[in-house]
Amino acid sequence: MTTPAIVRIPAFSVAGIAVRTRNSEEMNPAIARLGGLWNRFFSQSWEHKLPSRGDDGRVFGVYSGYESNEHGAFDVTAGVAVAEADRAQAAAVPGAARVDIEAGDYLVFTGAGEMPQMVIDTWVRIWQYFAENPQVQRRFGTDFEAYEGPDQVAIHIGVKP
């Protein structure tokens, strides 16, 4: 397993649509919500409904509102970065949610391949990394997936200094 890179990320906002879930629910296809979230995001063209796509046009999956840790409930927002000037306008779109990414240090894990397996495999590597490196502690503030295209992801995990 390659060592993830540590990157300092400035604060930014993502707008899109959101669900609340937990990892244990995502393991059960009968109650999993994330597949439906992404299907709705793309089938309803949310990436085009929002007033701004920030400066890079990437699609994001943002994990926030952690109840506790990876075992508790959390929110996932599928969306696009919005420029600071367009934040209020993006939040005013009916059904839209906005989440602010915390500034700070993030470990970046990359994955490539076919969806959704590449994302699943990358998360497995993330869980293994933290199990093998207990000295590195997650913040459980905001984490995010940045999609560079249909077959590449960079998952950013907020860590304590």
Rank of each mutant, 00 (worst) to 15 (best):
P150T: 01
G104D: 08
V14R: 01
V76N: 01
P94K: 12
A85W: 04
R33Y: 06
N28G: 08
F130A: 02
Q137S: 12
D100M: 11
S13E: 11
E84T: 15
I17A: 04
Y129L: 06
D100I: 10
S64G: 05
P116R: 03
E67M: 12
V93H: 08
W127I: 06
V82W: 05
T21R: 08
Q89A: 15
E70K: 12
D143S: 15
T2D: 13
V93I: 15
N28H: 13
E67L: 13
W46S: 04
G95R: 05
I120G: 15
E132L: 12
Y147S: 00
V62H: 02
G35F: 02
I6W: 09
D143Y: 09
R58F: 15
R33C: 09
E114S: 15
L37Y: 03
S13A: 15
V108G: 00
D55G: 15
A146H: 06
Q117M: 13
Q135V: 11
F12A: 04
T3I: 13
F74Q: 00
D100S: 15
V108W: 00
M115Y: 10
P10H: 14
M118I: 11
N39S: 15
P116D: 02
I157W: 02
V136A: 06
D105H: 14
G61N: 03
R125N: 08
I126L: 08
Q117E: 14
A30T: 12
L37W: 02
A11G: 12
E67P: 08
Y129K: 05
P10N: 15
S68L: 09
Y129D: 03
M27C: 13
R53C: 06
D143T: 13
D151H: 01
W46A: 02
T142G: 05
E25C: 07
E84F: 11
I120S: 13
E102D: 14
A154E: 13
D100F: 09
S24R: 14
N133Y: 07
P51G: 09
G104M: 06
P10L: 14
E102Q: 13
Y66H: 07
V108S: 01
G72E: 11
Y66V: 07
A131M: 11
E70M: 14
G36S: 13
R33G: 07
R20P: 00
P4W: 05
Y66I: 06
A30G: 10
F109L: 05
E102K: 10
G72I: 11
V159H: 05
R8C: 12
S43R: 09
I9S: 08
F12D: 03
G35V: 03
D121S: 14
A15Q: 07
D56L: 09
F109E: 02
G149A: 05
T77G: 06
R20S: 11
G65C: 05
Y106L: 11
V62Q: 02
A90H: 05
R87H: 10
V62D: 01
N69Q: 06
G104F: 05
G65H: 04
F109P: 00
L34D: 00
A73S: 14
F140R: 01
M27G: 12
R20F: 04
A83K: 13
A154P: 04
V153G: 00
T77C: 15
R53G: 06
S64R: 01
V124Q: 10
M27T: 15
L50K: 01
Y63H: 01
S68Y: 05
G111C: 03
I101M: 03
E84P: 11
A85N: 08
E26R: 07
R20E: 12
P51D: 04
R40N: 08
G65Y: 01
F12S: 04
G104S: 10
Y63R: 02
V93F: 06
